[in-house]
Amino acid sequence: MKIIYYGVQPEEEKTIQQWSFRHRIRVTIVSEVIDVINVHLAKGHQGVCLFPSQDMRTSEEIYRVLAHYQIQTIAIKSTGVDSVNFDWAKKYGLTITNVPTYSPTSVGHYAVMAILMGLRHLPQLMHQQGMPAGKEMNEVTIGLVGMGRIGQVVAETCQALGAKVIATTRTKQSGQVAGIQYVSLTQLVTQSDVVSLHLPQTKESYHLFDETVFEQLADDVVLVNTARGAIIDTQALLHWLARHPYASVVLDTLEDEEIYRMTNYTDNPWYQRLSIHPQVMITPHIAYYTQRAVDEIVWTTLTNTKDVITTGKSANQVFS
């Protein structure tokens, strides 16, 4: 058995090598993301691990070539699979897996840090803007959109710091945090001092935060997004920012970021338009970025691939 791993970062290599040694399976490491030029490197392998590139969304040729090389599975090294074209995956018989869970505290604690920075108007202060005094956690209401494992970490941590926490969620998870009041999205955005997003990108959540939702937010709200960029209608956000100087927005993810993943995230036109606003702080999708999380993602991605090749299925299968 041979597996090829595209888009490998330096901090992933040691874990890939450890997994390879443990399972006695050869793993080819490629630093570049997959595209129509380097897809030929997959020849002779049975499985592919990767983070979806822009070509994965737009080029059927990648899927066709992988199927021609008798690749059985594409293992996505993230929770989100929104950049995979499932029509082409189905057409060419490719099984798709993901990493549904990894260290929830990596993103959860980062989101809490972002909330605290927003409450103290750090985005504006870094732009040397005069601002009113900040707020403390024990005097605000935190609204969480999404209450999966990460949302639960944020809820528990904010509660421990004295905040009131309300939430909206599509389905109630097991092990829900005690003391959370569940409300509608409209109720949440109108009642919250802080709104933090913790839901996957789906057809239903695409541009969930549109012009209508923004108009319901408090003038001095703190908005945090560590989930997916396209949950926010960025054009609507820009219009809203122009009229709300006392709001604070901390974004760890932007629309179209996958296009600029292996170049420079500051080349993203959305980054360029948002970064001129003193209310906005942008980080390059690093909320997950701890060594523990990286190790868990790599290990799960490779194990998903092995399982599909050896048994025809994986516990983390999202499409077959």
Rank of each mutant, 00 (worst) to 15 (best):
K2P: 00
K2I: 05
I4R: 01
Y6D: 06
P10E: 10
K14H: 14
Q18C: 10
W19H: 05
V30R: 05
V30Y: 05
V30E: 14
I34S: 02
D35A: 08
V36H: 09
A42V: 04
A42M: 05
P52L: 00
P52A: 07
Q54M: 11
Q54P: 09
D55L: 09
E61P: 06
R64P: 01
V65L: 13
A67W: 03
I71L: 00
I71K: 01
T73A: 00
T79Q: 12
T79M: 12
V81L: 04
A89W: 02
K90F: 03
Y92E: 06
L94Y: 03
T97G: 00
T97K: 02
S106W: 08
V107W: 08
A111I: 08
A111D: 11
V112M: 00
I115H: 01
I115E: 03
I115F: 04
M117F: 12
L122K: 11
P123Y: 05
Q128T: 15
G134Q: 03
G134I: 04
T141M: 07
I142V: 15
L144F: 09
G146N: 06
M147C: 09
G148Q: 02
I150S: 03
Q152N: 11
Q152D: 08
Q152I: 07
A160T: 11
L161K: 03
I166D: 01
G175M: 06
Q176W: 12
Q181Y: 11
V183F: 06
V183T: 04
H198Y: 05
L199H: 08
P200I: 03
P200K: 00
E204I: 10
S205H: 06
Y206K: 10
E211I: 06
F214D: 02
E215R: 15
L217T: 10
A218R: 15
D220H: 09
V224E: 06
T226Q: 08
A227Y: 07
I231K: 00
A236C: 06
D252T: 10
T253V: 15
E257G: 11
E257N: 11
R261W: 12
T266C: 13
Q272M: 06
R273N: 13
R273G: 07
I276E: 14
H277K: 12
H277W: 12
Q279I: 06
M281C: 10
T283A: 07
A287I: 01
A287L: 05
Y288S: 09
V294N: 13
I297A: 04
I297G: 02
T305H: 02
T305V: 00
D307C: 07
D307S: 13
T310M: 10
G312N: 00
S314W: 02
